[in-house]
Design a protein around this nucleic acid. Structure first.
Length: 225
DNA sequence: CCAGACGTTGTT
DNA sequence: GTCTGG
DNA sequence: CCAGACGTTGTT
DNA sequence: GTCTGG
């Protein structure tokens, strides 16, 4: 999630909101890509699942295209960068719903995608920030970015960055409107490596048009335990 | 003062 | 090589 | 993140 | 909107 991830659970029917009118997918998602709408939970209204667009567009942007380069925010500098520093305060924090993410391991000329998730198989929350952008014509785009951090032991062999995954207690602080900025920043660190799992998958995941269950199959003969 | 950027990743 | 679209 | 385009004029 | 560079 640095650039691609999954959320295969059915969106909880209880309360699902799509403020931009984006369609809510019927089934599981195996290949969520930047500029697509995906489910998050908002600090300002934490109970429902909101569909926001991946790739943060700051409210002051003249052009929505800038969102394509704001799919991630470095946690090490998020409190300094003009595009993000005000969001981490001001109640623009969110949780991104996921149950795995993909990273491409570069080895010379070859790139091998890996699927990474929790050993338990449970879904998890990633730390995110949101923004609502309005164009002069009156349309709006509600968007988000995913915070990144340095790799843990598992990820080191694959990639030099990883998304910030928040354990349940940390997620509670991240979603507390009264939480101090410093306490929020302290949560942005690598997840416990021993609780995670990674295995190679088909290069079909590279094409965003592919979005099916075969994408998460272990690439033989490298079958995980 | 105004003009222009505001971001990350990976790769070399 | 670099930008755009998904 | 990767994949795919990257251009114009004129004619139908 | 706000910060940086000139």
């Amino acid at each position: 999630m640095c650039g691609r991830y999954t959320f295969t659970r059915k969106p909880e029917a209880s309360r699902v909101l799509s403020p931009d009118g984006a369609p809510v997918p019927e089934g599981p998602r195996y290949n969520i890509a930047p500029t697509q709408y995906a489910p998050i939970r908002l600090l300002s209204d934490p109970e429902p699942v909101y569909y926001y667009r991946w790739g943060l567009i700051p409210f002051w942007a003249k052009d929505a295209k800038i969102g394509a380069s704001m799919i991630n925010a470095r946690s090490e500098t998020v409190d300094e960068k003009p595009a993000f520093r005000n969001l981490i305060r001001q109640g623009s924090r969110c949780l991104v719903l996921a149950d795995s993410f993909y990273e491409w391991k570069t080895d010379g000329k070859t790139k091998q995608p890996y699927r990474i998730g929790l050993r338990s198989g449970a879904p998890f929350f990633c730390a995110g920030l949101t923004s609502v952008w309005r164009n002069p014509a009156g349309g709006q785009i509600s968007s988000y970015t995913i915070l990144t951090t340095s790799p843990n032991e598992l990820m080191e062999g694959i990639h030099d960055r990883m998304p910030v995954i928040l354990p349940r207690e940390a997620a509670a602080v991240w979603m507390d409107p009264r939480a101090e900025t410093g306490d929020c920043l302290a949560l942005l660190r690598p997840y416990e490596s021993a609780e995670m799992l990674a295995y190679p998958v088909s290069s079909r995941v590279g094409n965003v048009r592919n979005d099916d269950a075969d994408l998460i199959l272990p690439l033989s003969p490298d079958v995980p335990a």
